[in-house]
Design a protein around this nucleic acid. Structure first.
Length: 576
RNA sequence: GCCCUCGUAAUUGAAUGGAUACAAUACUCCCCUCCGAAGGGAGAAGUACAGGUUCGAUUCCUGUCGAGGGCACCA
């Protein structure tokens, strides 16, 4: 990679000029204005503070020592102290050959020893995936692709929250949808998919009788209770049927029944989720069940014991706390927080991942500090846990925001989104945006815009490469294709070549800071440079030498563009 | 009340503290005897506000305003 070679020669020059000083964290990047050069660095300006000298003088002192492969770089110094580089043809030629030689491996890194666990989507299995889940889903999927490309061993994981209150409520909602209750329940999952599940899931006879008996016991009190509850806020209404039962054993039986059928529904929903993800081109290697992998194996208790031994758990108001957060409620039940602690303990200690990346929705951002502190409590360096927050996608219809809620059944599913706008357009659209932005999503507009989506612009560049290569006869014998950088010396060709060379940099930067939208941007820029070149110059001409040189360029563009599209999970059409 | 994220062109977005803030869409106009125009070219338009740090601030800090989200033994 050219950038890292420039970086190396700068560091060497600094050391030889100023001795063994701490080199500041300088930048090497292609300047926006290409007249300044192919690359530029700010090292002299940063050094000015360290060595107390004029940045221009520092720059002048450094430039004579800057070489790649013992070739002196053409440099200029610009106020207030930028060093600009022009790359000699030999260097360009070498990098160009690298693309043709390594093909789709261009930009890949050597195998790294670190293992990464990348957990994403992890939507509650109480309903189908919404289009908002797509945002984190596409992000996680692409990040995994990128991290693998630079050489990490990546496990893609889905954490299934199949334990606790929500599963019980899901079961109860199924019963309700089966018309078993002669009254309303509170906190009900109310949507088409619940009705479908209700039709599909049959209670066995014994369970049916048990439930009927419990309902009869509760029925008398319902009218009274309804009057009492009507004045309460939502939080306190989450009482429902189980509170109508006096006997603790009845309550337990009722909960057990709800949970049992909640799990059955949950399994169905997980299957649906897997199907949706498959359609969205999102892959997971591990499906980690909270119930099976943590609760049944007593992992929560083990994690808790560990924290207790360290003396980090305090009792207050009958509950057990880790710092300001409850791990064991006063009724003796564990919290979700404890489950999450045990889960991440499992990732780092049991499964020995070096790095864990969690992609969460914005509704969890208040949870980040808590999780990191939790890791420190176990003695795990919290810097090994990276938590990425994707902001909400607001659904807009006729200029009005539509609140999405799984419980109320108000949402657009990921499946619907893909059907409406298509997989490539959907992936590209979501991945274009930084996860930090609050996106508005108007489905009608998205449909209309899907024809204007930059993804087609990028794909069309790939198609053009293909049709040129198909037209030429040389493609069948790739060994004939040699880069001839001296011939490719027009403005458009040079701009295109330099854009190609940025690919490894883009991959490397994204693997470091997880800003995956850089990739869609790069794809658009590369496609733009190619379209521009295509418009100005014919590849297939009478001149053999030009033919050969430009075909090599087209092959290189097709390779790199193909790699980007592969990373994005967007298809590479041969025709459109 | 406390905490987090965001505020850039008419719109949707981009910019590890760097040089003249970059694109796309929409708008006006121009370009196919074609390696498919799903393309190319030209035009106009922007950092919410007020301070501070710095050689240099869209970026960092403080405050104000605006949008979204979270938090008091839910998941």
């Amino acid at each position: 990679m050219i950038r890292s070679e420039i970086r190396k020669t700068i560091e060497a020059a600094v050391k030889s000029t100023f001795g063994d000083i701490a080199v500041p964290d300088f930048s090497v990047a292609a300047p926006e204005n290409s007249e300044h050069g192919d690359y530029a660095t700010n090292v002299a300006m940063l050094l000015a503070r360290v060595v107390k000298k004029n940045p221009m003088e520092i720059a002048e002192a450094l430039v004579r020592q800057l070489t790649i492969d013992n070739i002196q770089l053409t440099t200029t110094v610009a106020v207030p102290g930028f060093i600009n580089f022009r790359l000699p043809d030999e260097v360009l030629q070498k990098e160009f050959s690298e693309i043709l030689k390594r093909q789709e491996k261009y930009g890949s890194g050597a195998k790294k020893k670190e293992k990464i666990n990348l957990e994403f989507v992890s939507a509650n299995p109480t309903g189908p995936l919404t289009m908002a889940n797509g945002r984190g889903g596409f992000l996680g999927d692409v990040l995994a692709n990128i991290l693998e490309k630079v050489g990490y061993d990546v496990i893609r994981e889905y954490y299934i929250n199949d334990a606790g209150f929500q599963i019980t409520k899901l079961g109860e909602s199924i019963f309700k949808a089966q018309n078993r209750f002669p009254f309303d329940i509170v906190f009900e999952y109310k949507a088409e998919y619940v009705k479908e599940l209700a039709n599909k899931i049959k209670l066995n006879n014994l369970d049916g009788v048990k439930l009927a008996a419990l309902i009869i016991k509760a029925k008398d009190k319902f009218d009274v209770a309804k009057k009492v509850y009507s004045g309460l806020d939502k939080e306190n209404q989450i009482i429902g049927m189980r509170m109508l039962l006096d006997n603790p054993r009845d309550k337990k039986n009722y909960d057990d029944l709800c949970s049992k059928y909640g799990y059955i529904a949950c399994d169905e929903l997980v299957s649906l989720i897997r199907l949706s993800l498959k359609k969205a081109g999102i892959k997971h290697d591990v499906w980690f069940s909270e119930e099976q992998n943590l609760h049944k194996k007593k992992e929560l208790q083990k994690a808790l014991e560990l924290l207790r031994k360290k003396g980090l758990v305090n009792k207050k108001d009958g509950a057990e706390w880790l710092d300001d957060n409850v791990v064991i409620k006063s009724d003796g039940q564990s919290t979700y927080f404890l489950a999450d602690l045990a889960y991440h303990y499992d990732k780092f200690v049991k499964r020995k991942f070096d790095i864990a990346i969690d992609v969460w929705g914005a509704d969890h951002h208040g949870y980040v500090a808590r999780m990191k502190n939790g890791m420190q409590a176990f003695g795990i360096d919290s810097n090994r846990l990276h938590i990425l927050i994707t902001q909400f996608v607001r659904l807009v219809k006729d200029g009005e925001e539509v609140r999405m809620s799984k419980r109320a059944g108000e949402f657009i599913t990921l499946d619907e989104l893909l059907e409406e706008v298509g997989l490539d357009a959907a992936r590209f659209f979501f991945l274009m945006h930084s996860p930090d932005t609050h996106m508005d999503f108007d489905l009608d507009l998205a449909k209309k815009h899907s024809m204007d989506n930059p993804v087609y612009y990028v794909q069309y560049a790939h198609v053009r490469c293909q049709s040129i290569l198909a037209k030429s006869q040389i493609t069948n014998n790739k060994s004939q294709i040699k880069p001839k950088i001296q011939i490719l010396n027009t403005t458009e060709e040079r701009a295109l070549i330099k854009k190609l060379f940025q690919f490894p940099e883009v991959v490397e930067d994204t693997a470091r800071d997880y800003q995956a939208h850089r990739l869609t941007r790069y794809a658009t820029e590369l496609a733009g440079e190619f379209h521009n070149f295509y418009e100005k110059h014919r590849v297939i001409t009478e001149d053999e030498a030009i033919n050969e040189a430009r075909l090599a360029l087209v092959v290189a563009v097709k390779i790199v563009l193909g790699s980007v599209l592969d990373l994005l999970g967007v298809s590479k059409p041969e025709r459109m």
